[in-house]
Design a protein around this nucleic acid. Sequence first.
DNA 1: CTGAAAGCGCTTACAG
DNA 2: CTGAAAGCGCTTACAG
Lengths: 340, 340
Amino acid sequence: MKATIYDVARRAQVSIATVSRVVSGRARVTEETRARVLEAVRELNYHPNPVAQGLALQSTRTLALIIDHFDSIYQAKIVAGAETEARAHDYHLLVQQVADLDGDKLRRLSGRIDGIIISGGASTDELLRAATEQSIHTVRLGSLVPDLRADAVVADNYKGAYEAMEHLIGHGYRRIAHIAGPESSPHGKLRAKAYHAALEDHAIPQPKEYLAHGDYTHESGFQAMVGLLELSEPPDAVFCADDLLAMGANLAVHELGYSVPNDVAIVGFDGLETGAYVTPPLTSVYQPIEQLGRVAVETLLWRMAHPDEELRETVLPTEIVLRRSCGCPAVSHVASSTAA
Amino acid sequence: MKATIYDVARRAQVSIATVSRVVSGRARVTEETRARVLEAVRELNYHPNPVAQGLALQSTRTLALIIDHFDSIYQAKIVAGAETEARAHDYHLLVQQVADLDGDKLRRLSGRIDGIIISGGASTDELLRAATEQSIHTVRLGSLVPDLRADAVVADNYKGAYEAMEHLIGHGYRRIAHIAGPESSPHGKLRAKAYHAALEDHAIPQPKEYLAHGDYTHESGFQAMVGLLELSEPPDAVFCADDLLAMGANLAVHELGYSVPNDVAIVGFDGLETGAYVTPPLTSVYQPIEQLGRVAVETLLWRMAHPDEELRETVLPTEIVLRRSCGCPAVSHVASSTAA
DNA sequence: CTGAAAGCGCTTACAG
DNA sequence: CTGAAAGCGCTTACAG
């Protein structure tokens, strides 16, 4: 029922080679034959079978996006950006949830894709070696890693976090705690590093108890904050490694009868829209998540076209969004954001 | 560099047919040859090329998930569920953002997938006709539609919304408003219908001004609530078509100097975890979003195996999660939820 | 049980 | 410019 290139050739009285040429536009064809072929194509509603093309061309025109778990708005936005950019270039996007991608899993996937975008944490040394061997181009959602043959796309985690800290310090807070991400998070590590550096640079003490850990969930932020508030000298400000932690922390402050930002100020990271709707609206470091997905695809496509260029790392700027949880007297929950 | 079936055959001293047989396990082979082939497979690290298999078998073992835009936690969870289930059956998942999928776009996709899961709103009459013509199996994330040849997977929107209304009525509220979803949302329509029915059944007046509309964003919920509060007789409770609307509405109440739930109670829909972390924690109708994605894939796979069975609609139950925005005196932001 | 061969639907040197 | 043919890497009747 589905027309093939043979059907078109027969109807247009030409060979399949000619049909292929006019459909692909990759070679000169007489205007007259071309018209005949096009006519047949339309009549039969012919569309080349992409699988057959894939076999002949050794290219699938599909990319894979690999992230350990698709369960938060972050992943949704990465997918949104990546799919949009892929589609703009006539590529398709496959998604896969794999935390521990290895050479073997990669090999099973490799036949159906031309390249992969992989969440920073899962792109291990072994994996990249395997990818290289199978000549699968790879871009990391994360920083460049020495000796790993993978381009990188990442937000400026360190700088963003540092600015958040300077903002808190500027408000006059001097007992600043940090609820960090899990140990396994490369981004989290950079944000924690900036936390320490900013305090150090401003000669502000940083007691060990002021460093707590969560796993990027609301509840872990809640728990961490409870711990912080039970300290004999609780912090007067907390910088959280992401907005979910910050929202959890914020509720904990309320639950224990304190107030944000009067008793303790809070700043998050990600700049999620939802942060504008908690009480008080959450100050946060915005990172362009959807754009990260878009640029990752862009980079991958570029790499596929230029296999021998040197590694490229794209660092996207962050921007602090001032709302009220930091102590700023904002006019409205939306108007005060500096980000577009 | 990548081993093909020919390489394996040569090494094992058999024909490619035999290699295919042992690798696929679809036919009897002497234990001895089988061992030789397996040995060669291992040595060469052979994995069949899925594209070639796809061409030969006329099946790609990949499914497409089509939703207009991947930008909220809802879509992330659908992807999570769908990909998990697909992977469990050795299928892959392609995602695509298309609001107005039509026969033509479908045809371009059809060569690379065996079936599609499509967001309710986009599965029009025309589309389904096209899908049927191309014998592409389709499952709707939404209700069954008369005369449309597509299985359906959906949460019990009507019942969930009705229960939410009864809960508010049980609290004693009598001026209950509704912030509905956009006109284009099938789910939204059902929730609005339940709103009206519950009031009707309890002989509670429902002034026109109490029906507002949003587009499932925080900000539209905020604006709608502002409008409601400016009424000469503002509502004392508001049922929102989703949690984002509810969070926006909640902030609006605070911004205008009122209190939730004392001045106006709020109930949302979706039961997002994040709703537990606003102030006050949001009562909501939980729907198993990830499971919707999982069951959609399950249904699609079942349909592919049983093309002639009659249409199937799976309705998943919702469950009201009592937190504090409705007026319930909850012990903790988490402990009071009735949902697991 | 095993192999030779055709077929899945394309693309692209190679001739003419 | 156009066609015949080989090739992409598999699967599966059909013989033997």
